[in-house]
Simulated assay, not measured.
Amino acid sequence: MDVFYAYTYSTAAWFGIQAVPLIISPKLIITALSTEARKPTVLEEYLCRSLAFALLTLAILTVLLTGTIPLSSSLAESEITADPSDPKAPYAVPTLTVTAAFHALTAFYAYMQYTRHAQIGFALSEIGSGFLASMGCWCLVFGTEKGRISKRTGADKRTSGWPFKNEEAERRKGKRV
């Protein structure tokens, strides 16, 4: 599996993991986060469930806009237009950028809350979002541009011989090392 698709599925799963408790039991979440014992208001329950639906919507949009699930109506149409080495959707890189930035901001916020309150939930959120932010940044740096691959040798032309020389290539050319 490509790292790009692993990032896409991981992001959707992370959003889903965060959304499910908010949908199933918003009272439990509100009570656990509250400092005093009280019954949650109707507005708090509404906001919890609205946040959960927004997270599920983001998960679905991430999977659809990155091209992980092709949006064409027939299989033959998607085979003609899709290149297996590239992300298949035109919105893949912008979606990747926005979700990676979201994960980075969420990880930073969770870190700040963890240093203030020292609760394990913030630490878990920091670890999950931080991992996805680093994975998204890795995809942005290394996965969005095609390398300059030599047709003759199959090697990437952007590499250099510094600080180590490619002795095997020089030996093949007939040069002494």
Score class of each variant (00 low, 15 high):
residue 70 P to R: 03
residue 119 Q to T: 14
residue 103 H to A: 08
residue 107 A to C: 00
residue 91 Y to T: 15
residue 145 E to N: 11
residue 8 T to L: 10
residue 114 Y to P: 02
residue 131 F to H: 10
residue 24 I to Y: 13
residue 26 P to Y: 05
residue 18 Q to W: 10
residue 52 A to M: 02
residue 129 S to M: 07
residue 32 A to D: 12
residue 52 A to L: 01
residue 3 V to S: 12
residue 118 A to P: 04
residue 1 M to N: 08
residue 107 A to G: 00
residue 169 A to W: 07
residue 68 T to R: 14
residue 167 E to F: 11
residue 150 S to I: 00
residue 126 E to D: 11
residue 118 A to F: 09
residue 44 E to F: 02
residue 22 L to Y: 02
residue 96 L to K: 01
residue 75 L to N: 14
residue 159 T to Y: 10
residue 48 C to E: 03
residue 147 G to Q: 12
residue 6 A to T: 10
residue 104 A to E: 07
residue 129 S to E: 03
residue 83 D to I: 00
residue 114 Y to T: 05
residue 72 S to N: 06
residue 22 L to I: 01
residue 65 L to F: 12
residue 174 G to V: 03
residue 67 G to T: 02
residue 116 R to V: 00
residue 83 D to M: 01
residue 116 R to N: 05
residue 161 G to L: 06
residue 55 L to W: 01
residue 125 S to N: 15
residue 156 D to L: 07
residue 21 P to F: 09
residue 32 A to K: 14
residue 148 R to W: 07
residue 13 A to F: 05
residue 176 R to P: 07
residue 4 F to E: 01
residue 75 L to S: 13
residue 161 G to D: 11
residue 149 I to D: 04
residue 117 H to C: 08
residue 113 Q to D: 11
residue 78 S to I: 08
residue 3 V to C: 07
residue 78 S to G: 04
residue 163 P to G: 06
residue 2 D to T: 03
residue 30 I to T: 08
residue 35 T to K: 09
residue 23 I to E: 07
residue 29 I to F: 09
residue 100 A to S: 15
residue 67 G to L: 02
residue 104 A to C: 09
residue 51 L to I: 12
residue 140 L to S: 07
